[in-house]
Design a protein around this nucleic acid. Structure first.
Lengths: 343, 343
DNA sequence: GTGAAAGCGCTAACAT
DNA sequence: ATGTTAGCGCTTTCAC
């Protein structure tokens, strides 16, 4: 069933039917009602491609998922982000066009989005410090929002980020307040913008209290359980091991937890602070685990905000650059120590 | 840059340029070469919508992500599956069209795929026992492959599944061989086909050795760490607690591990067997954790196979129904007990 | 081997 | 308030 057929049945022109269906004001209400009903009865739904061809819109948002040749891991926050953004998209009739590509082909994927006119806008995931995609998409003139930030030109593009620096500063202060002096940092890859900011926050908190920064207590790498385990283990084997860990993801925290347990440390006194995604269910009960506080990073909410921002930009391209800085939420899971300082 | 412009530059007709670009045989090689080069230089890429409109193909595969109103969790294997399928898709010029919808709207999402002609085929994720989507998609006459199976009409649709029943049977036998008599089952929601099969495997292994099936040792629910923790805790508190656990996902295993640790059990003797996804990095070192063997379920590989199968079906619609049954791989992570029986 | 023209299903400018 | 017509950018007969 297409427009022509439907119009034929109704004894109307395609134009009128189209107008009635798309809410144009100049059609009589009685006609609109009749058209709507017929469309329902015959289960008419427009061909999105033809619609796109005619209007220049595709009603889809592009997300590129790079599969690294090095470390084959899908961005762990991707699913949660999509869940949040997807809510907004479907409320507005948009779909997601996913392009899974080898990371070396990423640029080409965006170019194809552009020239194939297959999307109305894109979201950039996992920005590096100084990310080339910003310049590329600006050049391609395709509306985009960055989930995160890329370096320091923060006023030259649209973004939604969580305050990673402040989160880690706050979390470090919290550990310092508990009396810890040697705090191990298990960070993500520091080529990533978020990891760089996290380290800055960590370092700033230490410096503010004149505690020297020990390179041996800092590790950066992929956020896997394996690396969390290995790096924590290495640090714990040093002559002056850390008494607490600041961890950059759930997986690493689990690895660190294992290393702590292997090293025979008593769980109640070892502390990890983890900043990560929405699932912090493990905090909701008072069990005896070394992770007892976390900075909850609202990934799903970020997804919603990115999507809202992008749709607005698409609808109204000439607005100023916009951005949102979310605060993560410091959560306490058990009470073996004082509550975190709320600032 | 569109076809018309490119043809203009070359002094050829659109037809010839189109034919040259799409590998039709009737164009002279010299011409083809000239066209290809010009296309490259001017960075010509076809408008996919127009192409789709003309050919009837959209070069996209639909995946529907239902967001349950009850339990807001994204299918945990989704990211890994997409990574595998995405490889195949992008090799063949396909993209993924993702529709995130409230689960009650799922049927409508497929209907929109159909009438909007936005996809050439779909993958069904997380099939329930007797899944209505099979009938729906068959009726809509849209090519599809199921990741998993839906009930017992296995010869009436295309599917790629892992042998859940056999995995859990084998894993249970393994625990029995170690001398365990009371084995706790922490299963997924048993409305899901895979969970039902896993329970069958578990039950069959016990029955074969005349071990009664104790309902108190079986739990089914969402595969979260929280539920793994709670159910393991409950079982461990019983008068005759389990001496081993069979766990249906990584998250639940982590929860169970915590419950075991809380209960003060010695780690070396408590056993969990987990069947889950690709990331089993935690097994690669011999640390002292209660999870020491796992059935590795090749999600990414399943993604590849589903994608390959679907593309073949799309290319050749009149083939017989096809299916692939993958075996999970039983892995041993530490050697506190005998190696698993390989059968 | 190449080109002209029709058409895919829709929207939008221009009538009436 | 409704209809006519001309595209959107591509593929695909049909002609030469």
């Amino acid at each position: 069933m297409n427009l022509k057929e439907l119009a034929g049945i109704l004894g109307l022109s395609q134009t009128t039917v189209s107008r009635a269906l798309n809410g144009y004001p100049e059609v009589r209400e009685a006609t609109r009602k009749r058209v709507m009903e017929a469309a329902n009865i015959h289960n008419y739904k427009p061909d999105m491609r033809a619609k796109g061809l005619a209007t220049g819109r595709s009603m889809a948002i592009g997300h590129v998922v790079p599969l690294s040749t090095q470390h084959e891991m899908v961005n762990p926050v991707f699913a949660d982000f999509i869940a949040g953004a997807g809510e907004i998209y479907s409320d507005n009739g948009y779909d997601i066009l996913l392009s899974v590509v080898a990371d070396v082909d990423e640029e080409n994927a965006y170019r194809k989005f552009r020239s194939g006119r297959s999307v109305d806008g894109v979201i950039i995931h996992g920005p590096h410090a100084e990310d080339p995609r910003i310049a590329l998409l600006t050049e391609l003139n395709i509306p985009f929002v960055v989930h995160g930030r890329a370096g320091d030109n923060e006023d030259r593009y649209n973004w939604v980020d969580v305050n990673n620096r402040h989160s880690f500063l706050r979390a470090t202060e919290f550990l310092l307040d508990l009396g810890h002096k040697r705090i191990g940092l298990l960070n993500g890859l520091e080529s990533m913008d978020f990891a760089r900011r996290r380290r800055e926050g960590y370092a700033a908190a230490l410096l503010a209290r004149d505690i020297p920064i020990d390179p041996d207590l800092m590790a950066a790498g992929e956020m896997t359980e394996e690396l969390g385990f290995r790096n924590a283990k290495r640090m714990l084997a040093e002559s002056a091991p850390p008494t607490a860990f600041l961890v950059s993801s759930m997986s690493m925290a689990i690895g660190a937890r294992r290393a702590i347990s292997d090293a025979g440390k008593t769980l109640g006194r070892d502390v990890s602070v983890v900043i990560h995604d929405d699932d912090l269910s493990y905090l909701k009960n008072g069990s005896n685990i070394p992770i007892f506080t976390a900075a909850r990073s609202p990934v799903r909410q970020a997804g919603r905000l990115c999507a809202e921002m992008l749709l607005e930009i698409i609808a109204n391209p000439d607005t100023e650059y916009r951005n949102v800085l979310l605060e993560s939420e410091l959560m306490v899971g058990m009470s073996t120590g004082p509550a975190p300082k709320q600032d």
